[in-house]
Structure formats: C-alpha cells, structure tokens
C-alpha cells in the first residue's frame, strides 16, 4: 500500500501539488508549475525561505509576498515556480516559532492521555497473546467506569 501510494505523483489538475521533495529533486522540471512549499524564513528583504529534506536544502526567493515576517518564522506558500530559485507567491500561511512548540506540547499531552487510558483499561493476555479490556480499570475517576 505504501509503495502504491508512493507511485502516485503530484498532479496539479487533480489538486495534488508538488512540494519540497519534488522541488529539491528536480527544480527545473517544475518551472512554470504551481507548487506548495514550506520552510523557515532565512532572509526578509527579499523574503527567502529554506526548503529542505533529510539530505539537501535549497533557498527560494518568495516574490509578491506581502505579510510581514521575521527570520525564523516558518511559512507555507503556494505559488508558481520561476527561474533562478524564485517563487511567485499566490497565498501563504505564516507560523511563528512558538506556535510549533505549543502544538508539540499539547499533542504530547494528548498522546499521554490515550496511553494512560490504555494502560488503565486494557491489558495484554499473555496466555492468548491478545489485548483485552480489564474487568476493572486500575483506577476510576469522576465518571467511574463510564468515563
């Protein structure tokens, strides 16, 4: 299934736009095409973002970009690829550095909550090697066994 999905390529006519990965792999192939890329701002006048993957990166000059940004903020930008590492921006979303930290922190809380409930209400039956609900949760709170 992962291989099948991997064989599906971006196709703007089907609203599947190339992103960082495609632009890093073959920039020239996408000149004139719409793309949606993201990365941290490394320069503000002009606005330049760095797109990267695990082994390479590229700096893109985002043109016609009007929101005020500062170095370190991340932007997700949709636009048309131009010559010479430029992008003609149509629309963008700006993300401040603290917002990512907030998201990771509350996401961690969410994951921890589910883990605690799993440990509390479910057990591994080693006789049958399967996961089963406990007859009685380890711990009950306000809603009793219903919450």
């Amino acid at each position: 299934m992962f291989v099948w999905a991997g064989s599906i390529t971006p196709h703007p006519a089907e609203n599947r736009y190339p992103g960082n990965t495609e632009l890093l792999e073959d920039y020239e192939a996408y000149i004139g095409d719409p793309v949606q890329i993201s990365g941290p701002v490394v320069h503000t006048e002009p606005v330049i973002i760095r797109i990267s993957n695990s082994h390479e990166s590229r700096e893109i000059n985002v043109q016609n970009f009007h929101p005020s940004v500062s170095v370190g903020e991340r932007i997700v930008v949709f636009g048309t690829v131009g010559d010479d590492n430029t992008l003609d921006s149509d629309n963008a979303v700006v993300r401040e550095p603290w917002e990512a930290k907030y998201m990771y922190l509350v996401s961690f809380v969410g994951g921890l909550w589910v883990l605690a409930r799993l440990v509390n209400g479910w057990k591994i039956n080693t006789d049958r090697w399967s996961v089963e609900p406990r007859d009685t949760p380890r711990f009950s709170w306000g809603g009793g066994e219903d919450a």
């Binding site: 099948w4 089907e14 609203n15 736009y17 949606q36 997700v76 930008v77």
Partner: peptide
C-alpha cells in the same frame, strides 16, 4: 485545515485521489 493552495491533501485515497477544496 487552511491550506495556501485551497485544497486539502488527498486524504480519502485510494477512493478519492484528488485534493478536495
């Protein structure tokens, strides 16, 4: 979710392969 392109990723794949608005 707000996307600059106006289209979500094709998350209903493989039943719908296009990105929906």
């Amino acid at each position: 979710l707000l996307k600059p392109s106006g289209y979500a990723s094709p998350m209903w794949w493989p039943f719908i392969t296009t990105g929906l608005p």
